[in-house]
Computed example of a mutant assay.
Amino acid sequence: MARRVLRPRADLQKEGAALSEVYDRLRGEIVDGTFEAGAQLVELALAEKYGTSRTPVREALRRLEQDGLVERAERGMRVRTRSPEEILEIYEVRISLEATAAAAAAQRRSDFDLIRIRRAQTAMDNTATDDPPAMAAANRAVHEAIWVASHNGTIVDLLTRLNNHLTRYPATTLKVPGRWSEALAEHHALIDAIEQRDADRAHDLARDHMTKARELRLQIYRDEPAD
């Protein structure tokens, strides 16, 4: 019987750090558009770019495939392509899950959950409207606080994965004229429903909020210049 060779812990830690660094850098460059939709992701070229071996690149690509940011093509991996059909698919599921999360939060939220949601909303209220990435991050923090208040780990996991898909559509719907103030008002109404433990109203408000986001996302996609 062959003996199992145990690798030194330092080597494993070094590999883990390299994987994490490659994953973070590659994910960031996909999200910010450095690698455009459909771009080929060649392991050897990426390893040279990041100054590492092909192993952490291969593992990073595998993780990004699970995240929905890359896909397999005839010649290896590529940045996942974008389409209006995908937007509709993502939001079809997201609208349902966001509404379910809001209803569950209204039923199950603790006082601490409510404090965390309101703090996130206050931060969003005070976010500068000339900084789209900060606007999107503040908005996401409010939604994530509501997800957590649902006390349903499966919902949180699924919504996190869907949000990963949407990072390939970097333009935020919150920059559409009038949407920022509208979104703030919708958030406050939703949070009030959660505070009052009105699950039905929370469900409907979250559904309507995300339905508007879907329509705006499609509008932005239609208005994008063709490549």
Rank of each mutant, 00 (worst) to 15 (best):
L114G: 02
L184M: 10
A141L: 11
H209F: 15
G28I: 05
F35A: 05
D113M: 09
V70K: 01
D32R: 11
V176E: 14
N126H: 07
A123L: 11
A213D: 14
T167M: 11
L218E: 14
P225V: 05
I191W: 03
R78P: 05
T173G: 02
R116V: 14
E74V: 13
E74M: 14
D198A: 08
E71W: 00
A185N: 02
K175Y: 09
S53D: 15
L162W: 03
D11W: 15
R168G: 00
P177G: 07
R222W: 10
M1T: 06
P84G: 04
R80D: 04
I30P: 12
A185D: 02
R78Y: 03
A105V: 06
A171R: 12
Q219S: 10
R217D: 09
A39Q: 06
L64F: 03
G153L: 05
A103S: 13
R82N: 07
T34Q: 05
D198K: 03
T55C: 05
A101P: 10
M1Q: 05
A104D: 07
D111L: 12
A183I: 12
V42T: 08
L12R: 07
I194A: 07
R75M: 10
M1N: 06
A136P: 04
D131A: 06
A37M: 04
D32S: 08
L26S: 00
A37G: 05
I87G: 00
Y23C: 06
E86T: 10
L46D: 00
T172D: 00
R82E: 15
A47P: 15
Y23H: 09
N152L: 06
H143Y: 14
H188I: 09
D113P: 14
A45I: 14
R82V: 13
I95R: 04
V70E: 03
A193D: 09
A136Q: 14
N163Y: 14
E43Y: 12
D113L: 11
H187Y: 07
R140D: 12
L205F: 09
